[in-house]
Design a protein around this nucleic acid. Structure first.
Length: 670
DNA sequence: GTAGGGTTAG
């Protein structure tokens, strides 16, 4: 059917139809789209000047409605040889469809379509719009060979002066593991814009050359030829894991100086803090977003929830949950996983379980979160049951899932179960154990009393045992008073981390317990000679929107007087029900004369007293600390929970003590 | 009427 000239004035109708076409953005719109398409075929002669743009709109619309075959059919109708007048339009149609394919991550399909263009003749030749798309698909599918071919072709066509083409080449090389080739493209550019720098920063970051990424970032900022944007922030982010404090400060300064802070810039800054253990900074920055009225998205919230968990910042975490509900962001796997972990980490196992149970879909991360939650609370059996349920669902446990279940076994003393899991991890799932797995096993064996077995386990390790592995062994030796192996563990620790006093203290405690006072003295003198200072124990608590930190014997807090009064009163009362400061723990502070006095002002105790003063009677007390809590504080916390009738949640570096009416969820096995 | 860099969970 060919429209006669009389149809041409009908473009008014065609315009209306095209607006309708452009409005079709979801599969539900397909019927209207098909109807509009049919009417357009009647209205527009294929040679009509409006026919080509119409086809582009149709391809876009079909793609948006997830009807890629239909989009493809429109494309095929656009490149017949007799459409000479619409020569260039054919290339545009290809570009639009390739774009749709890359957006759907169908990179192989995109590349196949790309490869089919040139053989169809000059009307279909790829252009400077096509090449960036093709290079992007090469990058995504890590196809360096094809990427190289395309980049060579591009250079021959002299299209490499085009910024878009150059940027996609930089990205392609970097993502295919050739950062130096990426840099060669960047270095050879006659003109660079903001995106050029972002592409290079991102390229080095993605390729793992973090220092180079930071270097380029700094050079770009120093040049002051253009202002960093959200793309710059997001590009430097992957290079900022385990970053130097100075570099984090530098990025923060850049962030602060940005005139317009896009949401992604906030999100990237939050992630940099979160990834580097700057939990307080992350929560503070989030609170500033709230204050400044910056609307968070799901990425913001998923980024700031883990720091909330780390700090046990329950009220901020809970408020974020409210925001998530209010904004109807659920279901969202990432957010639900982050919420599960945040609640668990704040000691709210029940809320964590509620989130987990309410989820419509769960992945290994969801299961790992809840398994680890029960484990940290000392409910090893529940963890194991959940792990088995996960297997029943047909999910494949990964390395982190095994860390969670092995840690749960060690926290609950489930020796046989733990051993079986370690075995199945290697034999059945072919996962190579990492240091974390070995640490769990040494802890599990050691605390169950199998010290020699734990030691043999270490000597048989195919990787170099790290500080945590030896630390777990030393801890076990202390509990079971195994001096011989304890000394071996201590020796290795002094070799690995000569500056960490915690281990000197553990060793000296062991000697003290064995009555070997001469050895106690010699360990002490080593510490004195080396000028070793104890890693300051710190407890943090959340009150309102603020996080407070307490150190041992801290008198910095404005309420200091009240806190010490409260603590005195508490100690008097718990002495009445059997509290005696634990002798052994006094050696934590070997350098102090007044041992008992010092023990009584451990940061955990100060933090508990502070919260008792400042919160209402039904509020649980949440304290997070940077070391393992000492036996004396654990006992004191249990007794304080009894006399004050308060729930106390004491989180230390590897587990959560949930204390209710004098009973701790750890069952005193820790 | 099309293209480049870039953020989130165990």
């Amino acid at each position: 059917m060919h429209a006669s000239r009389s149809h041409l004035p009908a473009t008014g109708d065609a315009d209306a139809l095209l607006r309708l076409v452009a409005a079709c953005r979801a599969p539900a719109h397909l019927p209207s789209l098909r109807a509009a398409h049919a009417r357009l075929l009647l209205l527009l002669h294929p040679a009509h000047p409006s026919a080509a743009p119409a086809r582009v709109k149709l391809i876009q619309a079909y793609a948006a409605c997830s009807a890629l075959p239909a989009a493809h059919a429109v494309l095929e109708s656009s490149c017949s040889p007799d459409r000479g007048a619409a020569a260039h339009a054919a290339t545009i149609c290809f570009n639009v469809l390739i774009r749709a394919l890359t957006a759907a991550s169908l990179h192989r399909d995109a590349l196949r379509l790309f490869a089919s263009m040139r053989p169809r003749g000059p009307a279909c030749f790829p252009d400077h719009y096509t090449y960036p798309l093709a290079l992007k698909s090469c990058a995504a599918s890590k196809d360096l060979l094809l990427g190289l071919q395309i980049h060579t072709a591009v250079a021959k066509l002299r299209l490499d002066a085009n910024l878009y083409v150059a940027h996609s080449a930089i990205s392609m090389y970097a993502r295919c593991g050739r950062p130096e080739d990426a840099y060669r493209v960047f270095d050879g550019m006659q003109h660079r814009d903001l995106v050029s720098w972002n592409a290079m920063i991102s390229g080095f970051a993605r390729a793992g050359l973090f220092e180079r990424a930071v270097e380029v970032f700094k050079e770009f900022v120093a040049l002051q030829c253009s202002v960093p944007d959200a793309g710059t922030m997001a590009s430097i982010l992957p290079a900022m894991g385990n970053a130097k404090a100075d570099d984090i400060l530098f990025v923060r300064k850049v962030f602060d100086e940005m005139q317009f802070k896009e949401l992604i810039s906030w999100n990237a800054m939050l992630a940099i803090y979160a990834n580097n253990g700057y939990h307080v900074k992350a929560v503070e920055l989030y609170l500033r977003m709230e204050k400044d009225g910056v609307e968070p998205d799901s990425v913001t919230l998923a980024t700031v929830l883990p720091p909330c968990g780390e700090l046990s910042a329950f009220s901020v975490g809970k408020r974020i949950h409210e925001i998530i509900k209010r904004k109807r962001m659920l279901p969202n796997l990432l957010l639900e996983n982050a919420l599960t972990d945040m609640y668990a980490s704040c000691g709210c196992l029940k809320d964590a379980r509620e989130i987990f149970d309410s989820m419509s879909a769960r992945d290994v991360i969801s299961w790992t979160s809840i398994i680890s939650a029960y484990g940290k609370h000392g409910h090893g059996r529940e963890s194991v049951d959940l792990f088995e349920k996960m297997l029943e669902q047909g999910l494949e446990p990964d390395s982190v899932a095994f860390v969670a279940v092995l840690a749960a076994c060690s926290h609950a003393g489930l020796l046989g179960v733990g051993k079986r899991y370690f075995d199945s991890m290697t034999r059945r799932y072919h996962i190579t154990p990492k240091a974390e797995h070995y640490t769990c096993m040494v802890d599990l064996l050691g605390r169950a009393g199998c010290i020699s077995e734990a030691y043999d386990f270490i000597t048989a390790m195919p990787i170099e045992p790290n500080v945590r592995v030896w630390g777990a062994l030393l801890q076990a030796c202390r509990i079971h008073s195994n001096m011989d192996i304890g000394i071996v563990a201590a020796d290795n620790l002094f070799r690995l981390v000569p500056e960490q006093t915690g281990y000197y203290v553990l060793l000296s405690n062991m000697y003290a317990r064995a009555g070997r006072w001469a050895d106690v003295t010699s360990v002490r003198s080593v510490m004195v000679n080396k000028g070793i200072k104890k890693l300051p124990g710190a407890s943090i608590v959340e009150l309102g929107d603020r996080v407070y930190t307490f150190h041992i014997g801290d008198r910095c807090h404005p309420q200091s007087e009240m806190i010490y009064q409260k603590l005195d009163e508490l100690l008097k009362r718990i002495r009445g029900i059997g509290y005696n400061p634990e002798v052994e723990a006094t050696l934590h502070d070997v350098e102090e004369e007044d041992k008992e006095g010092h023990l009584l002002v451990h940061s955990e105790k100060l933090a508990i007293a502070f919260l008792l003063i400042n919160t209402s009677p039904e509020t649980p007390i949440r304290v997070t600390m940077n070391l393992r809590t000492c036996g004396d504080c654990h006992l004191a916390a249990k007794l304080i929970s009894t006399i004050t009738n308060r729930e106390i949640i004491l989180k230390d570096t590897n587990r959560i003590h949930h204390i209710v009416q004098g009973v701790c969820s750890c069952g005193d096995y820790w």
